[in-house]
Design a binder for these strands. Structure first.
Lengths: 259, 259
DNA sequence: GATCGTTGTGCGCATAGCGTACAGTTGTAC
DNA sequence: GTACAACTGTACGCTATGCGCACAACGATC
């Protein structure tokens, strides 16, 4: 870990750490569990937990704690601002309706893609990702687009930190293989990833550019039957590029007007 | 304000306050603006802001700050746990598909309803609410269901704190009128609110009960043509009650199994 | 140049938050 | 039953943490 500058407020870090200690696998935590999870004394963990209960972000259940819906407040302002997800939503809805497929918009955050907006096709159940969820960037279509478009140095840095996991039989096997795939993605301007993260998961993604600035990646799920057919390159990719452009234009216009 | 207990960690409160200072109307804030917004010294605000930048929740833009997508992490664990939204999602999707209407699930938080899950019908644009957003409970169908089902004392407390705003010509005018409406809602077990919050907004809601425990409220948008017709009471309400029951059953089963 | 409203930064001080320590509770083993 | 282990909540003195004053530098507007 790097040196902490002298302006650093340690309690802020702890506050967030306490809130993040709760996840899908650990929705209910006791004082001791939190203390261990974030490496602070039990007394400290208790102080923070009780404070967060007071503030309404946690609730006590016996001598364990769980999050309340109020934690959504913290991210809500991001989703409602003049930000990318807000701008993209109607476009994703229209695209989802036209293709009858689930659509999503992600940004890159370190080694992960982060879902900032998602519109699911009614019939599909697919993967149960919600806004704010993370998936490993290297194993997803959106992630590969986002990494492929990175400057060379950043791309290599990403690759050197990447930890490949062999999710399915089709998962890319090595860093070199992944690097080659990224080159292809960059050259063609889209990425198709089929069943590399999960057997039932196939995604097609294109970058969303506003001028030279990479805003995010746009994704649609893809029917198995379409894989290998020309409809992907001939129909879906052009359509998605048009939507990506629309989002970028909207984003620029509104953010310029806003504030 | 009440006395703060001696276990209280003020920095935790400030950390959250800083993050919440950013909202849709103020996505970009300077040190001074934040200091004023949350009533702390400029130096303190600066320390917290810089710390949050270090942690990756904020980013600097000139000498202003804005939230990064990472703020979504904090709520993501709630959405992904064995919690209500996660359980309800497939049911909302199915209902949205069947009715071709936007569906949503809310819980009550103080005077507001809080969206914990939402599935929009493809063609609809409707209101741009996202997960985590709040609306005044008294003016919405879900809010009225949730308040109507409250114990009498809590209901009166809600009414005494309610601050009615005259949003449209159809908005309920007085607390007494609202109380009468709540009695009707409780008696019939559903609420229809048309154009009281916004001209284009009509919602129908039913409670989601697991045994005696009120989990939340289920909502669908309603076409103008259907208002007043028998299809609401004869078709939509029964269908929604069935879905609400399915969600409640699922929720009980999974949470009992989990952990 | 002068005034006002910003901005970032340094530093001594008070207190907020620390962790040790102790006491009460629960569950299991024997 | 006692003994033990692993929890729990609470108290209190100490120190490091975070406080806010004060200063300096910058950019407008007049």
């Amino acid at each position: 870990m790097a040196e902490q500058p002298d302006y650093y407020v340690k309690s802020a870090e702890k506050t967030l750490a306490v809130l993040l200690a709760f996840d899908a696998a650990h929705p209910l935590l006791t004082v001791t569990q939190v203390a261990e999870a974030i490496s602070v004394s039990r007394a400290a963990a208790r102080r923070f937990l009780l404070t967060l209960v007071d503030l309404g972000y946690l609730e006590a259940d016996g001598n364990a704690f769980r999050q309340t819906p109020r934690v959504l407040d913290i991210g809500a302002s991001y989703l409602s601002g003049l930000t990318l997800p807000q701008v993209a939503r109607p476009h994703l809805q229209a695209l989802a309706a036209e293709l009858s497929e689930t659509t999503a918009l992600c940004v890159l955050d370190d080694q992960d893609i982060l879902y900032v907006e998602r519109v699911s096709a009614p019939r599909m159940h697919s993967m149960n990702v919600s806004i704010g969820n993370r998936l490993p960037a290297w194993a997803t279509s959106m992630g590969r687009v986002l990494v492929a478009e990175l400057p060379a140095a950043a791309r290599e840095e990403f690759l050197s930190n990447a930890r490949l996991t062999h999710y399915t039989a089709k998962t890319v096997a090595s860093i070199d293989e992944l690097r080659a795939e990224l080159d292809t993605v960059r050259a063609q301007g889209w990425s198709l990833v089929a069943q590399e993260l999960d057997e039932g998961l196939r995604g097609l993604a294109v970058p969303v550019y506003r001028g030279a600035q990479l805003l995010g990646a746009l994704n649609v799920s893809v029917q198995p039957g379409r894989i290998g057919s020309t409809s992907i390159t001939d129909e879906m990719v052009p359509l998605m590029r048009r939507v990506a452009q629309d989002i970028a234009d909207d984003f620029g216009g509104r953010t310029a007007a806003g504030n």
